[in-house]
């Protein structure tokens, strides 16, 4: 009871610095949550792109039975999940949509000029090198004129996304380092400002644990406040920013950014835990560095 009262008294006495610490901590943890979510989403996009990637295969014959024959052979290749024949009308429509400037010219093409093609999807758990091997096998099939792999373009896009995502995680850890630094500074100041009272308590036989316990309670209360501030801020962000964000990224073909309620609870809980761990570490470190008699 004494420790609890001492903690509450401490917060009241240092109300301004406590508030500043909560605001500062919340800002850092909020940034961490946003970066973490974004990095996670980017890496998920990376995985999705890999999993759903397909290749186009052009067949050297225009005969339906030949195309069917190639399809049968393709389905037997290891690493292929599914394949479908692309009709010439669909191909023409695709060209018109993606190259609107050439729409008139494309419309003028006769259907007999357009090559017959198939779209092949890989298995979801396929490895990068396995996919390369599968592409080589597809290229060697009789009746296959050309495999439009686009590997180089895709590989560079995937690498960029992966580095962005990993960079986000690095930033996340760096921010936590900053947060720890702020916390250590806070407890160092606390130690100097309350040195006399701590010496006094020590002179009554208080152990180091007894001295640090009110700080631990104080850190707990502040961590709860930090978690709530982060939660409210994220909820606000979800309400006002998510739609705008998805509108933008939706136009460039990314999956929508989903932010579930369970994720929100998880982030609030994680913020509290991370904040509390920082308080524990910092208060313990401050006390260890202080030479107590």
């Amino acid at each position: 009871m004494y420790f609890l009262k001492a903690a509450l008294l401490g917060i009241r006495r240092r109300l301004l610095s406590s508030l500043l610490l909560v605001v500062g901590s919340s800002s850092i943890l909020l940034a961490m949550a946003a970066i973490g979510l974004w990095s996670n989403w980017l890496l998920q996009q990376n995985e999705n792109m890999k999993a759903h990637r397909s290749v186009a295969i052009f067949v050297d014959s225009r005969n339906d039975s030949d195309v069917e024959d190639v399809l049968t052979k393709i389905m037997q290749v290891k690493g292929v999940d599914s394949a479908r024949i692309i009709s010439t009308e669909e191909f023409q429509s695709f060209l018109s949509q993606h190259f609107p400037d050439l729409a008139a010219a494309v419309d003028g093409l006769g259907l007999d000029i357009i090559p017959r093609s198939l779209e092949v999807f890989f298995s979801k758990d396929i490895h990068y090198f396995e996919r390369l091997e599968t592409v080589r096998t597809l290229e060697g099939l009789s009746g296959v004129q050309r495999v439009d792999d686009g590997m180089d373009r895709m590989a560079s896009a995937l690498t960029s996304i992966r580095w962005l995502g990993l960079g986000g995680y690095f930033l996340l850890f760096s921010l936590y380092g900053v947060f720890l630094f702020v916390c250590v500074g806070h407890y160092q100041n606390l130690l100097y400002s309350e040195a006399q009272e701590l010496s006094l308590v020590r002179s009554f036989g208080a152990t180091k644990f007894m001295i640090v316990l009110p700080w631990i309670f104080e850190g707990f209360f502040q961590s709860v406040a930090v978690g709530l501030v982060v939660g409210v801020s994220l909820l606000g962000g979800k309400t006002y920013l998510l739609e705008v964000y998805n509108q933008f990224f939706g136009t460039v073909g990314y999956d929508p950014f989903h932010f579930e309620f369970t994720n929100l609870l998880l982030i609030i809980f994680a913020s509290m835990i991370l904040s509390f761990l920082a308080h524990l570490f910092s208060s313990g470190l401050a006390l260890l560095r202080w030479r107590l008699h």
């Binding site: 004494y2 008294l9 006495r13 009272e197 006094l200 308590v201 009554f204 036989g205 208080a206």
Partner: peptide
């Protein structure tokens, strides 16, 4: 501890000691 009450000052050794 000048910001604290007389009771808190006087009784504190009972808790730690």
């Amino acid at each position: 501890m000048k910001e604290r009450t007389v009771f808190e000052n006087v009784a504190i050794p009972l808790f730690f000691g």
